[in-house]
Design a protein around this nucleic acid. Structure first.
Lengths: 341, 341
DNA sequence: ATTAGCACTCCCTAATGATGAGTGCTAACA
DNA sequence: TGTTAGCACTCATCATTAGGGAGTGCTAAT
C-alpha cells in the first residue's frame, strides 16, 4: 500500500505532467506550498514509486513521468471531481435548453462542444440502428424500372434504397408487396429483418407476386447495409495540437484508424454503462498506444443507447474530461429520451 | 516565346521534380539520353527560364524548382496523355462493370479508388440535392406527438425529418395534409420547395387543417436543411505521405479546411465542365498555397452533376491525375445516367 | 553558339563542448 | 530512524565548428 506522502507525490506528478507535458522533477514538486518535505525526500519517494511501477524516467537524469500503471492508479483512486467554470456549464446547458431540434443536429453539436471544451477529439456513436423496429414499409416508384424502398423505424429513423424493378412489374404488384410486408414485418427489429425477409416473406411473396425475387434481394440489402449506428466526429484536428502527436507517423496511424468505421465500434464503445477509461495499451491497438479513451453512454428512448468517446493522449486531463462527459451524457439522455415519450 | 530547347528543359525539370521532390540540377538533366547538350548550356537556359519566371531556386547554389508560373505553363502546353498500366485500367473498369449497386456506394468507392491510384486526396461532391424534384410526400406517424416526414425525389433521393405534432393532430389531418402536399408540390425542385411551402401550401393547408402551422415550419426545415450535395472523401491521410506536408501546421490548416463543409463547394467545385486545374495560389486560400486541385464533373441523369476534386501538392503528377480523372468522370457519368433512364 | 574549367556559395551532417536540469548516494542532523 | 544538505554524475539541448558535396555563374577556349 502506498503511504500518504507517496499518494501526494503521485498526484502532483500526474497533475503537473498533464498540464506541462514535461517530466517533473523533485525541485518542482517541492515548490507546491502544500508539499512540506524537501526535494531529497521526494527523490527517495520517487525512486520507490518507480520501483513499484507507477513512475518512469525518460532518461537517467530526467524528472519522472507517470507510467500507465501510474495513470491507472490515479484514475482509480486519486480522481477528484473538478469544478467547472460557470461559462462552461452554461455552454453545455444552453445547447439542451434550445427548442429541441432534430436529434441528429443535437448529437452533432454535442460532439463539437465536447471537443471544444476538452481540446481532444470526440467520437460519438449514434444508437445502434439494428435495434430499431420496423414501423412502416413504403415503396415509391420512380420510373418503369426503378423505385425507392423505404423503411421507417419506430423512433423515426429512415432507411432507404434504390430498387431496380423487373420488367413488367406493375404498380399493383408493388401495392400487394407493400401490403404483405407491412402486415408481416411491422415490429421486427432491423437486426431480425434480414432473416425474416429471407425466410418468411420471400415464400409468401412468391405466391402473390411473381418476379419478386430480385426486389426482395434488394430489400435484404437495406437491412444488412450499414449495420451500425451513425458516427459523428468532433475536433478531429485537435490532436495535432498535442505535443505527443508531433510525430507524423502516430498521427497517420490514428487518422487511418478513425477512417475505418468498422473498427470504431469495438474500440470506442463502452462495454457497460457509466464512464469508462482505457489507458494506453489497454486499448489493445498499436495506434492507440499513447492514447487514452474515456467513454460514456447515453440513452435514446428506452432501450437504445449511443456512446461518446473522448480520445486524447495518455497525458490527458482525466478529471476534467470525466466531469464534462458526465454532464454531457446525462444531458443527452434527457434530451433524447423525452422526445420519444 | 520559349525556344524548343527551353521547352524540353522545363519539361524535364517538372517531370523530374514531380517524382523526386528534389531541386533538379543541370548535370541531372544532361543525363537524360534525349538531352544532347551539355550541363553548361543547360545552366544558361535555366538562368533564362528563371528570369522569365518559370523556375525558382531554393537557395543560391541549388538546382531549380518549377515556379507556379512554370507549372501553369506545363499544364497548359506540355501535358502529354499518359499511358496507364493495364492493371489500373482494369481496376477502374471493374468497378463500373459490377452489377450497378446503390449509387451512393458507387460514388464512395470511386473516391477510394481515385485516391488509391493517385496517392492524393479525393473530395467527391454528390449532385446538388437542391435540383432534385419532389416525387412524393409521405408522413408516417410514430406516436401521438411525433411523426416522420419523408420526401422522395425524382432520382431516388430520400430526405426525412422528425416532426413534433401539435396536440390533437389526428391521423385524418395527416392524410389530408399529405394529399394536399402531393397534389400541389410534386415536380417542384427542393430549391423552390422552401418558398412554395411557405407561400402557397401554408395558406391552403390552413384552410383544411387547423394547427398545421408548426408542422409546415418543420417541413420547411427539410428543404433548407442541408442545401448542398453530399460530400465523400477518399484517402484523407494520403497527404501525410507527401514530403511537403511534413510540416504539421500545413497539415492542420488543410484538415481544418476539409472539415468545414461550407467552404468545400466554393473551393473544389469546377466552374464549368471538363477538367480544370488550379495551382497553388490560384486556389485563393492560404491553406492551399502549396496545393493544386484538379477537378472534373460527372453527370447524374440529365441536369444534375457532381464533381470530383483531387488535392495534392503543387508538385503533383498532373499528367497521371488528369488521365485518371478523365476516365473516372466518364465512367461515373455512364454508370449514373443509365440508371435513370 | 557551345562547352570545359574553375572559383564560389550554400546546405547538410557529424563532431565538439558548454550549460543546466535532475538524479542517486552519502553523510550529517533532529 | 526519518529527513535533509551536499556533491558527483548523467544526459538532453543548444550553439559552434569544420568538412564534404552538389550546384551555380562566369570566363575563356573551341
Amino acid at each position: 500500500m502506498l503511504t500518504n506522502r507517496q499518494l501526494q507525490i503521485l498526484q502532483v506528478i500526474v497533475d503537473d505532467f498533464v498540464t506541462s507535458a514535461q517530466p517533473v522533477g523533485s525541485r518542482q514538486i517541492s515548490k507546491k506550498d502544500w508539499i512540506t518535505f524537501s526535494p531529497a525526500t521526494i527523490r527517495n519517494e520517487m525512486a520507490d514509486l518507480e520501483e513499484l511501477g507507477f513512475l518512469e524516467k525518460t532518461h537517467t537524469s530526467s524528472g519522472r513521468v507517470p507510467s500507465e500503471k501510474g495513470y491507472r492508479f490515479y484514475v482509480d483512486h486519486l480522481l477528484q471531481p473538478q469544478i467547472m467554470s460557470a461559462d462552461e456549464v452554461t455552454q453545455i446547458h444552453s445547447m439542451f435548453k434550445t427548442q429541441i431540434v432534430e436529434a441528429e443536429q443535437l448529437i452533432r453539436e454535442s460532439a463539437n462542444i465536447l471537443s471544444e471544451l476538452t481540446t481532444y477529439t470526440t467520437i460519438l456513436l449514434g444508437p445502434d440502428v439494428q435495434k430499431h423496429k420496423v414501423k412502416r414499409f413504403q415503396i415509391v416508384p420512380l420510373s418503369e424500372q426503378s423505385a425507392v424502398a423505404i423503411i421507417v423505424t419506430d423512433n423515426g429513423h429512415v432507411e432507404n434504397r434504390l430498387l431496380t424493378l423487373p420488367p413488367a412489374f406493375s404498380p399493383s404488384d408493388i401495392e400487394k408487396m407493400v401490403n404483405i410486408l407491412n402486415e408481416r414485418l411491422i415490429g421486427v427489429s432491423l437486426h431480425d429483418l434480414h432473416r425474416k425477409l429471407e425466410v418468411e416473406a420471400l415464400a409468401v411473396l412468391k405466391q402473390h407476386v411473381r418476379t419478386a425475387d430480385d426486389v426482395i434481394q434488394s430489400l435484404i440489402g437495406i437491412s444488412s447495409g450499414q449495420n451500425e449506428g451513425k458516427i459523428y466526429y468532433g475536433g478531429k484536428t485537435n490532436m495535432l495540437n498535442q505535443p505527443e502527436f508531433h510525430d507524423l507517423n502516430k498521427v497517420r496511424m490514428l487518422m487511418e484508424l478513425m477512417e475505418k468505421e468498422s473498427q470504431l465500434q469495438s474500440l470506442f464503445k463502452p462495454n457497460n454503462t457509466g464512464i469508462q477509461i482505457r489507458i494506453g495499451s489497454e486499448n489493445n491497438h498499436l495506434a492507440m498506444e499513447n492514447c487514452s479513451v474515456i467513454t460514456a453512454s447515453f440513452l435514446v428512448g428506452e432501450e437504445q443507447h449511443g456512446s461518446i468517446a473522448i480520445i486524447g493522449p495518455t497525458r490527458m486531463d482525466y478529471q476534467r474530461v470525466v466531469t464534462i462527459l458526465d454532464i454531457m451524457s446525462r444531458g443527452l439522455t434527457n434530451a433524447l429520451s423525452q422526445r420519444n415519450d
